[in-house]
Design a protein around this nucleic acid. Sequence first.
RNA 1: GUGGUUAUAGCUCAGUUGGUUAGAGCGUCGGAUUGUGGUUCCGAAGGUCGCGGGUUCGAGCCCCGUUUUCCACCCCA
Length: 453
Amino acid sequence: MQKPSIPKGTRDFTPEEMANRNYIFNTIKSVFQLYGFQQIETPAMENLSTLMGKYGEEGDKLLFKILNSGDFISGTTDEELLERNSTKLTGKFAEKGLRYDLTVPFARFVVQNRDKISFPFKRYQIQPVWRADRPQKGRYREFYQCDVDVVGSDSLLNELELIQIVDEVYRRLKINVCIKINNRKILSGIAEIIGEAEKITDITVAIDKMDKIGLEKVNEEIASKGITQSAIDKLQPILKLSGSNAEKLFQLKTVLSGSETGLKGVAELETIFNLCESVGISTKIELDLTLARGLNYYTGAIFEVKALDVEIGSITGGGRYDNLTGVFGMEGVSGVGISFGADRIYDVLNQLNLYPETSAEQTQILFVSFGEKELMYCLPWLKSLRNSGINAEIYPEPSKMKKQMGYADNKNIPFVAIVGETEMKEGKVMLKNMKTGEQKLMSLDEIMTGVKN
RNA sequence: GUGGUUAUAGCUCAGUUGGUUAGAGCGUCGGAUUGUGGUUCCGAAGGUCGCGGGUUCGAGCCCCGUUUUCCACCCCA
């Protein structure tokens, strides 16, 4: 006998769990559609060449590669095998990989299908992605992302709409969140001002950890990357900026007065804040200069959403990228998007127990019977109920009452229709309300209204 | 990739300094109750103690390896 198991970092979902997950997906989906986004899907696997090099060195390691079918070893020489260079050999053994996120496949999609889409293109995509990470709290090897992106528009109105979407999704899900916002141009400006422009990635990665490891450790990490002490000293007042968003922006303007890029970033954020002000966003938005985000294709605004009542990593994140399609040969197309981490949202909802009580997916009425004749008698009833949109099922074999009732109880079915000799003679069924225990002989019409209430 | 941690029935977990036949609750199945579930009572089935090796007269317990779980780091949703 084989012990059943699934790969590490993956999960099964029971019907109850799926009902809860669908609640999340449906909520997110309906808000996306409210703003005019259209759904696309892309394959689970992409050509490795599409994925490699897009997520940095670390990302390449975390890609799941798919072994070539057939004799995958045939294209390799003995010398290559003896070399035991796994990076080189993966290129020979695997030419496909599982998608790591939805943004890069989307960029590929846009370039490949540009004749069929009109810009600005607003798309959403809800699909699983895979990362060969070590699983831990809130981190899985297979998880869903819910991406919304607009490509082909530079307008900051898009940033505003994404913020509105975040606001609305979490309002509907009843999760208290805080939106953190920053701008890559500001970060670049800072790096420029302190004279370490080319170390921008190291600097951002380090200051991204600010709220986790604190100022001192951040400085240590920056120093370890070979950044001069005078540059670090210049960085300190910036890292310690405080006050309201407007105050921070005001101070930044003086600090970044020598950097054109930096000032542009400040101006962008100012516009975004003003737009938010004018439409009214109920979620708290905070300018956080320590927000950097790892993915290095971001070039403008960057966002991150944190749940306030649960200790978990960010549950939504994104930003603007000026030239994502460039690598696929389509220059000058700017995009901005965010990604909802459905699995982390699911964890948050589980911890706070914020699911709606009744699920639309549930069976409303179960037919219980005593024999073949009764089963046949039920079939037209079932058909009518289903035609009028009532979820109905029948216990498919004439088992003991206890068993059939137990089935209804386990599935939390609110009504049971009992059918035997007496009911058939009367042309009715015995409808039992499982919560109150009341039961009554009823006709079809009476059942329709009874079940609906 | 680094460090720690976990693994015993379908599930959640007990299991003494290493000592006879490895236990409980829940769930499942049967019965009390042949037209009534969620309560109660009785009974039954269900185990290669993750896997492989070692120490020992004897291993669920100790040692090594491996896989797995969870956690932290790296990184990230």
